[in-house]
């Protein structure tokens, strides 16, 4: 089982430290997203990178539409990895939906996590007037999925047929793999639904693990109001508004991302030693 999990989720462990630091990618890509940030923590941490089942170089045979119909299936991936590597009190760093997946995992088994660091988290993308503004109307999200369909997932069957009918042209597969972070289109559609149409606002109050919210300026996906909302509901949460714009500060502003995470971890370590 342990070995299976490590292969299933394409788990990669590096770093010289003993304390585990788990990096969880968001929707649409894989562990490569952490390429500019994760190495900075290898000196002091045991750095753990992985792909969710259905993403990156995970084992697609392990994918089940039922298990991964909502984010709890993905949270189970995280807990399985903790179990396989015997992780306790980890620093969990999640991007976007990866943060919510971490939240769900931490509710299920808080002993695995010491801190949650969340980049651009959103517990609910849909607006829920009058009190909650997720930033999206239903039509917006349907438009997004429509755009995914036009780009890739809508043509998946045709593309795979083209590939199967042209075994002498392996470059077709190569191109396809490169074109969308090798995400399987069926999985992509279901992951998109699980991500964008979920509402985990009620789960926030059950989080006991302290957290840091890294909010980007001008993020079209997770607006500032959402970051502030999370900060107000999550107990023991810290909030930092980044200079970084967009939704991928770990790619666009890796230095700032690294600095804010390091500062936070240092401050809580100091606090702990003061208290201890």
């Amino acid at each position: 089982m342990n070995q299976n999990t490590l292969i299933r989720n394409n788990v990669n462990v590096t770093g010289k430290g003993t304390k585990a630091m788990i990096f969880a990618h968001g929707f649409g890509c894989d562990q490569n997203m952490w390429r500019l940030v994760a190495p900075a923590f290898e000196e002091n941490f045991r750095v753990i990178l992985f792909d969710y089942v259905g993403s990156g170089k995970s084992d697609y045979n392990a994918y089940s539409s039922t298990k991964y119909q909502d984010l709890h299936g993905y949270a189970q991936d995280v807990l399985d990895i903790c179990d396989a590597l015997d992780i306790k009190d980890a620093i969990f760093v999640g991007h976007s939906v990866g943060s919510i997946i971490g939240i769900l995992a931490s509710i299920q088994d808080p002993s695995r996590f010491e801190r949650l660091v969340m980049l651009g988290p959103s517990p609910c993308f849909l607006n829920d007037p009058p009190h909650y503004k997720g930033g999206f109307e239903k039509e917006d999200l349907e438009g997004l999925i429509g755009m995914m369909e036009m780009n890739y997932i809508g043509w998946a069957n045709y593309l795979s047929q083209v590939i199967m009918k042209n075994p002498e042209r392996p470059e077709l597969y190569q191109e396809l793999e490169e074109s969308f972070c090798s995400t399987d289109p069926t999985v992509a559609r279901e992951f998109a639904t699980a991500t964008f149409f979920s509402d985990h606002r009620n789960d926030l109050q059950n989080v006991t693990v302290p957290s840091l919210i890294l909010q980007c300026s001008d993020d079209a996906i997770a607006p500032i109001e959402v970051g502030k909302y999370m900060h107000s509901v999550l107990t023991e949460s810290a909030y930092a508004l980044m200079e970084a714009t967009g939704h991928c500060p770990h790619l666009s502003h890796p230095e700032e991302t690294i600095r804010l995470i390091s500062d936070y971890l240092k401050s809580v370590a100091d606090q702990d030693s003061l208290n201890g």
Binding site: F27, G28, C29, N32, M33, R35, F136, D140, G143, L144, G146, M147, M148, N151, F180, C181, D219, A220, I221, G246, H247, C248, L251, S252
Partner: peptide, 18 residues
């Protein structure tokens, strides 16, 4: 457009960077 803004963040930016 609204959908493109999101799509740009989800796909275009990670791809061009990586």
């Amino acid at each position: 457009t609204r959908a493109s803004k999101t799509f740009y963040q989800l796909y275009f930016f990670p791809m061009i960077r990586l």
